[in-house]
Simulated assay, not measured.
Amino acid sequence: MMASDQKADLHRYLKTARESFLWKLDGLSEYDVRRPLTPTGTNLLGLVKHLASIELGYFGATFGRPSNEPLPWLADDAEPNADLWATPEESREELIALYHRAWAHADATIEELALDATGHVPWWPPHRNPVPLHLILIHVIAETNRHGGHADIVRELIDGATGLRPENSNLPDADPAWWAAYRDRLERAAREAAGLRPPA
Results as ranks from 00 to 15, higher is better:
residue 72 P to W: 07
residue 72 P to R: 05
residue 73 W to A: 07
residue 73 W to K: 00
residue 73 W to E: 15
residue 73 W to H: 15
residue 73 W to F: 13
residue 73 W to M: 06
residue 73 W to N: 03
residue 73 W to L: 01
residue 74 L to H: 07
residue 74 L to A: 08
residue 74 L to N: 11
residue 75 A to S: 14
residue 75 A to R: 07
residue 75 A to V: 08
residue 75 A to Q: 10
residue 76 D to Y: 08
residue 76 D to V: 05
residue 76 D to P: 05
residue 76 D to R: 11
residue 76 D to I: 01
residue 77 D to P: 00
residue 77 D to C: 04
residue 77 D to S: 07
residue 78 A to V: 02
residue 78 A to L: 03
residue 78 A to M: 00
residue 78 A to E: 09
residue 79 E to H: 10
residue 79 E to Y: 08
residue 80 P to D: 05
residue 80 P to I: 02
residue 80 P to C: 04
residue 80 P to G: 07
residue 81 N to C: 10
residue 81 N to E: 14
residue 81 N to Q: 14
residue 81 N to R: 11
residue 81 N to T: 00
residue 82 A to K: 04
residue 82 A to C: 06
residue 82 A to R: 08
residue 82 A to P: 09
residue 83 D to F: 00
residue 83 D to Q: 09
residue 83 D to H: 06
residue 83 D to V: 05
residue 84 L to N: 12
residue 84 L to P: 10
residue 85 W to R: 15
residue 86 A to H: 01
residue 86 A to R: 05
residue 86 A to P: 02
residue 86 A to D: 00
residue 86 A to L: 02
residue 86 A to T: 06
residue 87 T to Y: 07
residue 87 T to S: 13
residue 88 P to A: 12
residue 88 P to E: 13
residue 88 P to G: 11
residue 88 P to C: 12
residue 88 P to D: 13
residue 88 P to R: 13
residue 88 P to I: 10
residue 89 E to N: 12
residue 89 E to I: 04
residue 89 E to S: 15
residue 90 E to M: 04
residue 90 E to G: 00
residue 91 S to D: 03
residue 91 S to V: 07
residue 91 S to K: 06
residue 91 S to T: 10
residue 92 R to L: 11
residue 92 R to V: 04
residue 92 R to C: 09
residue 92 R to H: 13
residue 92 R to K: 13
residue 92 R to T: 12
residue 93 E to S: 07
residue 93 E to N: 02
residue 93 E to Y: 04
residue 93 E to M: 07
residue 93 E to C: 05
residue 93 E to A: 08
residue 94 E to N: 03
residue 94 E to H: 02
residue 95 L to K: 02
residue 95 L to W: 01
residue 95 L to M: 01
residue 96 I to R: 04
residue 96 I to S: 05
residue 96 I to M: 04
residue 96 I to G: 01
residue 97 A to Q: 03
residue 97 A to V: 03
residue 97 A to W: 05
residue 97 A to S: 02
residue 97 A to T: 00
residue 98 L to Q: 04
residue 98 L to R: 05
residue 98 L to N: 04
residue 98 L to K: 04
residue 99 Y to L: 04
residue 99 Y to H: 08
residue 99 Y to W: 11
residue 100 H to E: 15
residue 100 H to N: 12
residue 100 H to I: 01
residue 100 H to C: 06
residue 101 R to W: 06
residue 101 R to T: 12
residue 101 R to V: 07
residue 101 R to S: 13
residue 101 R to M: 09
residue 101 R to F: 06
residue 102 A to I: 06
residue 102 A to T: 05
residue 102 A to C: 13
residue 103 W to M: 15
residue 103 W to T: 15
residue 104 A to Y: 07
residue 104 A to E: 15
residue 105 H to Y: 10
residue 105 H to P: 06
residue 105 H to A: 11
residue 105 H to I: 09
residue 106 A to T: 09
residue 106 A to G: 14
residue 106 A to R: 09
residue 106 A to F: 09
residue 107 D to L: 04
residue 107 D to K: 05
residue 107 D to S: 12
residue 107 D to W: 00
residue 108 A to F: 10
residue 108 A to D: 15
residue 108 A to W: 14
residue 108 A to V: 14
residue 108 A to K: 14
residue 108 A to P: 00
residue 108 A to C: 12
residue 109 T to H: 10
residue 109 T to M: 13
residue 109 T to N: 10
residue 109 T to C: 15
residue 110 I to L: 02
residue 110 I to M: 07
residue 111 E to G: 03
residue 111 E to W: 00
residue 111 E to L: 02
residue 111 E to C: 03
residue 111 E to A: 11
residue 111 E to Q: 07
